[in-house]
């Protein structure tokens, strides 16, 4: 069976994929539909949805909520992806070294990983951003720093079990060097769980970013969903639309990514394949 067929067996995963596709489309076409800066004051403040030319209403300063959502999509997706890539990169290296060499190196790396894991991740992220000054880079770094331990633990476990497999030992007996064994022989065999955990991490990263922006720790020059929710929170009773629509955008995106992650898990994990 092809990969796509396996994936498509999970209907909700396909739904998720469609939603993600639409959000990406929205992020790409934002400058076409909303050419103005989303921070610009576009008209009457506190307009309800559909009035004064605002599709989803405007906030207390008269900024267009719809424009904010469209432009914020790029920020959320970009930060989610970048942070995940960095986290997976670091996590794979740490996990691979620990799992492959074992012993002292494993002890050292895993104790270090545990140190990161003992601190509640969101508080840790707030702390990091507060220290580094809010900017896109610092947010990406902060999210990556709190996310890599999970990847490292996963990869370590996979490498530990692969290390003893006979095909890996066969590589030793033909004199292959360690780096090559790790990269070319072992890593491809644990790609599936890495892809799955990575896809789910994108969702978490988007949530953390929104949370940071909500608390006012986002990049002040870049529109994001979390910032919108944060800006509208005091008006929740008088102007519900300011918080609600960006909130729904976050919800949909995270849900869609989680569904796709689940679908990938079902498709890539042959043991679960028959569990219907």
């Amino acid at each position: 069976m092809t990969f796509w067929k396996l994936f498509a067996r999970n209907r909700s995963a396909v739904m998720g994929l469609v939603i993600i596709f639409l959000i990406i489309l929205m992020a790409l076409t934002a400058p076409l539909f909303f050419p103005a800066d989303p921070f610009s004051l576009a008209g009457q403040p506190m307009s309800p949805p559909g009035e004064n030319g605002f599709l989803l209403g405007s906030d207390s300063l008269g900024r267009d909520v719809a424009a904010g959502i469209a432009h914020g999509a790029k920020t959320s997706l970009l930060i989610g992806l970048l942070a995940t890539l960095v986290a997976v990169f670091v996590g794979v290296i740490m996990g691979a070294l620990a799992g492959y060499y074992g012993g002292f190196i494993d002890n050292l790396l895993m104790r270090a990983t545990e140190m990161f894991q003992t601190i509640p991740s969101f508080i840790f992220a707030i702390l990091l951003v507060a220290i580094m000054k809010p900017s896109i880079e610092s947010i990406v770094i902060a999210i990556a720093v709190v996310s890599w331990p999970a990847v490292a633990r996963l990869v370590r476990g996979e490498f530990l079990s692969l290390r003893g497999r006979e095909f890996v030992q066969a590589c030793h007996t033909i004199g292959m060097n360690d780096i090559r064994i790790m990269l070319a022989e072992m890593l491809p065999n644990c790609l599936s769980p890495i892809i799955v955990i990575g896809s789910l991490m994108v969702a978490t990263a988007i949530l953390i970013e929104s949370g940071l922006a909500f608390l006012g720790l986002g990049d002040p020059n870049i529109m994001s969903w979390g910032f919108q929710v944060g800006a509208g929170r005091t008006l929740l009773r008088s102007a519900w639309w300011v918080c609600t629509f960006p909130g729904i955008a976050i919800l949909l995106t995270v849900l869609a990514i989680n569904l796709v992650g689940e679908g990938l898990n079902d498709a890539l994990n042959p043991r679960l394949r028959e569990r219907t």
């Binding site: 497999r165 006979e166 095909f167 030992q169 066969a170 007996t173 033909i174 004199g175 022989e185 491809p188 065999n189």
Partner: peptide
């Protein structure tokens, strides 16, 4: 290394599936 080579027990585990 090349002078001594090994044949393994489990034909399913001894070849990289990828």
């Amino acid at each position: 290394r090349s002078k001594i080579q090994m044949v393994f027990q489990d034909p399913f585990a001894s070849l990289n599936p990828r």
